[in-house]
Amino acid sequence: MSAREAILAAAHGLFGARGYRAVTVREIAAAAGCSPALVIKHFGSKEQLFAQTRPDDALTHAITAPRSELGEALVFRVLMRRERGLPEPWTTMSRNVRELPDSEAARDATREQLLAWMADLMGDTSPGRRHAEVVCALMLGLAEGTRTLGLLAAPGWHFDDAVRHYGAIVQAEIDRVP
């Protein structure tokens, strides 16, 4: 692995787990086994490095579920990451957009990337990708609610029940796509 690849891998993991503000160039360099100067030499700045790592790209990894099961597949991913204590891309994406120095540009770029991915995944060609936008909002709410407030984890909620229940809500919007 080249130094550049090691830096990208280290930055991806750290930004994905802790967010843009909480990570320093020194920490990235230490995790990559190089100097902070080499990080800056390769990427120019922490912001430029962040733009190349896309720590929220875990959202867009291939989902192989058929469209009729897509709602549950999306919800399953969020709840399974919570169960395993893994970073949640839906929540880190929001936090990272708020933390970047040019958050408006980051918001626009992230929104476009996310909506393009979701619209493609669900076959949404509606004006403004309205159905994809609603599904993204539902998923962001699920991720924040389960991580921040512990929703869908109280006694009486079993993992499979939560996946089926919330998955049906998400699926209802997916099914509205002609």
Results as ranks from 00 to 15, higher is better:
Val23Arg: 04
Glu88His: 14
Leu114Ile: 14
Glu5Gln: 12
Gly16Met: 05
Pro55Tyr: 00
Val170Tyr: 12
Met139Pro: 13
His158Glu: 13
Leu38Lys: 15
Arg111Asp: 02
His12Ala: 10
Asp57Gln: 13
Arg4Leu: 05
Asp124Pro: 02
Ile40Met: 05
Ala9Leu: 10
Ile174Trp: 05
Ala30Asn: 09
Glu69Phe: 01
Leu74Gln: 03
Met1Tyr: 01
Met1Asn: 04
Val97Asp: 02
Arg164Cys: 10
Leu114Met: 15
Ala172Ile: 07
Thr60Asp: 00
Arg176Thr: 15
Leu74Asp: 02
Ala17Lys: 13
Leu100Gln: 14
Ser35Pro: 04
Ala31His: 07
Arg98Thr: 12
Asp108Glu: 13
Ala172Asp: 14
Arg18Ser: 08
Ala168Gly: 13
Ala10Gly: 01
Gly85Asp: 03
Ser35Tyr: 10
Ser35His: 12
Arg95Val: 09
Met80His: 13
Glu47Ile: 00
Ala73Leu: 11
Ile7Tyr: 00
Cys34Met: 10
Val23Gly: 00
Ser2Asp: 14
Glu27Trp: 08
Glu27His: 11
Glu83Met: 07
Gln48Cys: 06
Phe43Arg: 11
Asp57Val: 10
Thr125Phe: 03
Phe76Trp: 15
Thr146Leu: 02
Met80Thr: 15
Gln113Arg: 12
Thr60Gly: 05
Arg21Ala: 06
Pro87Ile: 04
Glu27Ile: 07
Glu47Cys: 03
Ala172Glu: 13
Glu144Met: 14
His12Phe: 12
Leu152Ser: 09
Phe50Ser: 02
Pro36Lys: 07
Glu5Lys: 08
Met118Gln: 11
Glu47Asp: 13
Arg82Ile: 12
Leu142Cys: 01
Ser103Arg: 08
His165Ala: 12
Gln113Cys: 04
Glu144Arg: 11
Val75Tyr: 02
Glu144Thr: 13
Thr125Glu: 14
Ala119Cys: 10
Glu99Met: 09
Ile7Ala: 01
Glu173Phe: 07
Ala62Cys: 01
Asp56Leu: 00
Pro55His: 00
Met139Leu: 15
Thr64Ser: 09
Leu8Pro: 01
Ala73Met: 08
Phe43Cys: 05
Leu152Lys: 10
Met118Gly: 02
Glu72Asp: 08
His131Arg: 10
Ile40Ala: 00
Asp124Lys: 06
Arg95Thr: 13
Asp161Tyr: 12
Gly150Lys: 10
Ala30His: 08
His61Ser: 10
Pro55Gln: 03
Met139Trp: 05
His158Phe: 07
Ala6Tyr: 01
His165Leu: 15
Val97Ile: 15
Arg77Gln: 08
Glu173Leu: 06
Cys34Thr: 15
Arg77Phe: 01
Glu133Trp: 04
Arg95Ser: 04
Leu149Cys: 10
Gly150Val: 10
Arg4His: 11
Asp175Gln: 13
Glu69Asn: 03
Ile40Lys: 00
His131Asn: 02
Glu47Asn: 08
Lys41Pro: 03
Glu69Gly: 03
Ala143Asn: 09
Arg176Ser: 13
Arg164Trp: 10
Ser68Ala: 15
Asp124Ser: 02
Ala62Thr: 04
Gly141Asp: 14
